[in-house]
Amino acid sequence: MMPLALDIAVAAVALAMLLCAFRLFRGPEVTDRLLALDTLYINVVALVVLLGIRQQTELLFEAALIVAMLGFVSTVALARYLTRGDVIE
């Protein structure tokens, strides 16, 4: 049963990523694109974890941890840039 569930989950996450991409290209505000990018990062984490289960390797989970951290830092940096005009004062 698990392989089937994995397939469905990968498909659902991929569809969610497509919807994020739609919002990323559509905008209309720059913050919408930022939100789409942040969501895209979280979805990538989910996708990498799913791949990790499928390929039965521990390595990919650590990759997912790094993706999560990069996503958070870049969201914070971009949001600060939009608010303040610079990232580091």
Binding site: M2, A5, L6, I8, A9, V10, A11, A12, V13, L15, A16, M17, L18, L19, C20, R23, L35, A36, T39, N43, A46, L50
Partner: peptide
């Protein structure tokens, strides 16, 4: 897995 993936999809749809 199914619950998680469905909620992720809901997030995308809402977005």
């Amino acid at each position: 897995l199914i619950i998680g993936a469905l909620f992720t999809l809901v997030g995308g749809i809402g977005l």
